[in-house]
Amino acid sequence: MGSKSEKVETIPPSNHLRAKLGLIGDMPVEMDMEALRRAEEAVAQLQESYPEWVGPDVDRMEILLNDAKGLSGEARTASLRELFDIAHNIKGQGVSFSYPLMTDIGQSLCAFLHGMKKMDDGAFSLIKAHIQAMQVVMRDRLQDAEDPLAKKVISELCAIGARIG
């Protein structure tokens, strides 16, 4: 923020949006609960089909990993970069689609890929394990972030990643 001696020009709030939407003066406006209900229903429908949407993304990660095994140099880096981007997207979206475990696994995988020092058999196996964990979550539609077994698996993935990364 600027220092006390710095000149500050203040531009008052604009009523542009209120005017555009036909609101007169300070007329109070409430949330349209029916519209909100419709929106929440639409979100629920999207969440229902999330496993079908994200399935091809997870499959793509598996293909990229297999490609990376047979590649070297920049080609391998490019494959792993695309794999990272998909994992990053899954990390960002999982919780919004009521699949928080996907976010947790994506986060673990991103952290591992980000800090990975060498690409050896151990690294390949760990990436593969993350992908398989995502496939199980989607296959069994596991939406409970507190599922004890799922938490244990993710905890192990994170721990191994921290150890070998």
Partner: peptide, 11 residues
């Protein structure tokens, strides 16, 4: 819509 912010211009 309800509470648009004022804007400020500083250096």
């Amino acid at each position: 819509i309800h509470n648009p912010p004022a804007f400020v211009r500083e250096k």
